[in-house]
């Protein structure tokens, strides 16, 4: 019941960046959507953490390379399994942001755009958990899952379990940079583009 919570929460204590983010929804820019992917330490929201977030925007149906976003998040622990998949190791030479900094920049980037992603509910949930830690409400953006869009595209009314890899293969998209948040976001954006246009 997020909307209830939103109504009854005093918004004046929110930081400026949240106010700016919320204000963006006054005039929605429907031309822009954001395709997002995050890498996490695992699939258990109760204990796992976000390691990185990547996102790229489409303007109408065109992916804009310039309009992209990518952060690495500083975390206290790293499960060995996740390191194996994503190659993100604590204390490697890259610049890391704190969760709060990462979220602030993310909000600035996405603004009021619709968020697209493959099995995106998990990413949204993880982000919302961080927002909650910061005493902020959930994301206000509309969300659409490429998995659902794919089912619609195929004309079926039940979810189809296909991985991003499967979809890339089906749509003849060369798989590069899998398992970096930005790389996956870019691939997802290309899948979305095809689902949108065909």
């Amino acid at each position: 019941m997020n909307w209830l919570k939103n109504i009854f929460t005093d918004t004046s204590n929110y930081p400026d960046y949240w106010k700016d983010y919320a204000a963006a929804f006054q005039q929605k820019n429907k031309q822009r959507v954001v395709v997002l992917d995050s890498e996490t330490t695992g699939l258990n929201p109760a204990k796992d953490k976000i390691l990185s977030i990547g996102a790229v925007a489409l303007h109408e149906t065109i992916i804009s390379v310039k309009d992209q976003f990518s952060v690495l998040v500083k975390q206290d622990f790293n499960s060995a399994e996740s390191v194996l998949i994503h190659g993100i190791v604590k204390n490697s030479s890259h610049d890391y942001l704190t969760e709060a900094e990462a979220i602030q920049q993310l909000l600035e980037f996405i603004g009021s755009a619709k968020i697209i992603g493959h099995h995106i509910q998990f990413d949204i949930h993880m982000i919302n958990l961080v927002l909650k830690k910061l005493n902020l409400p959930n994301l206000k953006n509309k969300v659409e899952d490429t998995s659902d869009l794919y089912a619609k595209f195929k004309g079926v009314h039940h979810p189809i379990q296909k991985s991003l890899d499967d979809l890339c293969t089906e749509f003849n998209i060369p798989k590069k940079d899998r398992h970096t948040a930005l790389g996956d976001a870019f691939l997802t954006a290309q899948v979305y583009q095809r689902l949108l246009i065909q």
């Binding site: 390379v65 310039k66 954006a189 583009q193 246009i197």
Partner: peptide, 11 residues
């Protein structure tokens, strides 16, 4: 140049 690229998909 690469940064300026806009990726189009044309059926």
């Amino acid at each position: 140049v690469a940064e300026q690229v806009r990726v189009h998909y044309i059926p």
